[in-house]
Design a protein around this nucleic acid. Structure first.
Lengths: 218, 218
DNA sequence: TTAAATTATTAAGCATACTTAAATTAAAAT
DNA sequence: ATTTTAATTTAAGTATGCTTAATAATTTAA
């Protein structure tokens, strides 16, 4: 029996809203690895608490209060990540899980102090933007997945997805980090894998891997 | 309805064992502000988990495993306190509550990294010793409560109790900190209050306050 | 546009960690 | 040694956040 907190629900909802500002319960269930039934239960409670708008069989929306709560959770998470990576020296692939726990256990005061100490960082170690205390996000450079680069094109890494530890460990090992330049040498149609150059060294990467690394838009 | 974790029970038990290495359930209940019945419940579970020795109506003991777990919790707590105070600049009276939450949400790896970063601190900001990873405590200077000093005696603060935020806030305000010298100018028999000198300034303090500040033994 | 598949909800049940009230045991006081 | 008091345990009950199974609504596809 797991025990996901309301804060986790709000974060997941916030991060996975569609273009209409809605999300379906099964998405939440999948992201949290729990049953749909548990999600229905919790949505009713979150609605009663005033964090979401819930109508049976309809898409879920965040209220203003819910959105600001969720944004603050994202802020907490990302500030912890910067701190763990830059100050504590924890590697890329470890900070996400650690921050996932710490984000629920720190006062706003502590988060603000960390933010000052880090001189108001705008991006976390994976390139994700950090909401300010007022809820504003820094401008985000246009970017596209590495998988969309053409042969012989070069671009700069500005963001990587952070949900899989082994993914981060691997790309870190082959030299991929933020601001690193990557050149696509060869694209193979049969499995969409590609050969890339990092620091002059060639590597073969799968399409799935390339889809989770994001580079600057020309 | 509160929700005290097993880790909190173990910490409280560890910190309040008597000379025989035992503790009564009502002490635990009082420290955690929960009912005796809840404590009985949990003690059975902790016994089943192998952390305590429990026999109906008898004093509770920690097993070796329970003691080492509890010692580690104390270690986590105090390392967080040093970190919050020295690195983050959080005031004396705030670090205890913050550490109380963080101690449950950090990996051993993070604690070890913080310890290295802080260069293996031996005492927390209130003067309490920090167990090493191997469970060893630094030598503790002999000390006695300030309330036991005679008139015109001077001594140095080496520890203060940390369980009350307003207490810490107040003594901090009147200039009491670790390594500070205090002189007792006058002791009043009727209520055991005393006049003390800190940095040349006179202050009146109650007996209860004086009992929670500890100074060097001659 | 109806059937099939997917998604969401309800219902019943479980574990955890508490509560209060009643019963039992131990300790203290006469 | 007996009574009184205090501490402890048991019993019954609650809220939370999950589970699986059954049912209902919606969406997709033939």
């Amino acid at each position: 029996m797991k025990n996901i907190s309301k804060e986790d629900y709000l974060s997941v909802i916030f991060k996975n809203l569609n273009y209409d500002g809605e999300i379906k319960p099964n998405i939440i269930a999948a992201k949290l690895s729990i049953s749909n039934a548990a999600v229905t239960d919790m949505l009713k409670k979150l609605a009663k608490d005033g964090f979401v708008v819930y109508k049976r069989y309809k898409g879920i929306q965040l209220t203003e209060e819910g959105e600001s709560y969720a944004r603050n959770m994202v802020r907490r998470h990302r500030i912890w990540e910067v701190f763990l990576n830059q100050v504590v020296g924890m590697p890329w692939d470890k900070v996400h899980d650690e921050a996932n726990r710490l984000e629920h256990s720190s006062s706003d005061d502590l988060i603000d102090r960390l933010e000052v100490m880090l001189d108001y960082p705008e991006y976390d170690p994976h390139g994700d933007p950090i909401p300010s205390k007022e809820g504003k996000l820094p401008k985000i450079k246009k970017h596209r997945p590495l998988s969309e680069l053409k042969e012989n094109e070069t671009s700069t890494v500005i963001r990587v997805n952070d949900f899989d530890e082994s993914f981060l460990k691997y790309i870190s090992k082959i030299g991929i980090k933020l601001k690193e330049k990557i050149t696509v040498k060869e694209r193979r149609t049969f499995d969409k894998s590609m050969e890339i150059l990092i620091n002059g060294k060639p590597w073969n990467i799968s399409n799935k891997l390339a889809q989770n690394i994001f580079v600057e838009m020309k």
